[in-house]
Amino acid sequence: MFDSEYFNLGYLDTLSYKDTLIHRLDPRTKLVATLAFIVTVVSFPKYEIAGLLPFFLFPVLLFTLSDIPVKFILRKVFLVSSFAFFVGVFNPLLDRQAVYEFYGFTISGGWVSFLSVMLKFFLTITSALLLVATTSFPGVCHALQKLGMPGVFVTQLLFLYRYIFVLVEETMKVVRARDMRSFGSKGKGMKTFVSLIGTLFLRTIERAERIYLAMLSRGFTGTIHTSRTCSFSITDAAFLATAAGALYLFRMHDVVGYLGRLSMGTF
């Protein structure tokens, strides 16, 4: 669990360096659009289901346009869905008031609100993961800084992010080395584990010190400067305008109902 989550972190990072239409967008554009999307989805009331469905268009478009493996993201969503599930699963038990009758089937309010919570969770979590899958984390940090986040905090985020990967890489090496030298359960005990992690941490710290000294000698004054430039292009403007228009349409108008009535009317 621990390992696989860290591993996924690396894979998300790799994905974010692809070169597609979505990846090329300005990080600020994607950050703003994602936040707007989440706020819009969350603004729906407790028993909303139909109104949430058109919003699936966004993740589907992003998945396809940015070549992000659907299965990988869905597995991650499923991993964290336990929270949503535990929150929601008690609704059907506690809220037994019937709200719909559908050809003899009675559906209780609890099931409706449970489904609604799960849909909201799916949409908000998927969009957040898609953001980091299509934007490198340094890109997100850069966007945060451009949007007014203090430099010290952005530097702290970048450092934290860097150290996580350093620790993972070292850990993989050391674990492999231990596995090769241990026999059965011998050598995999607590004592070995503790000294392994200890060595690992020391090495990491030493590396951090070296990096810090190297940075100092290159004039590090507390903020990381990058040559990365943010350019807000016409594509970005078009993307934002389309997203805003679609969000407004889906939030304020009953798209599902309109389509339903339209199709029922044609029969």
Partner: peptide, 8 residues
């Protein structure tokens, strides 16, 4: 509603 949802 269900028809509309399915279409969407």
């Amino acid at each position: 509603g269900i028809v509309g949802s399915a279409i969407v």
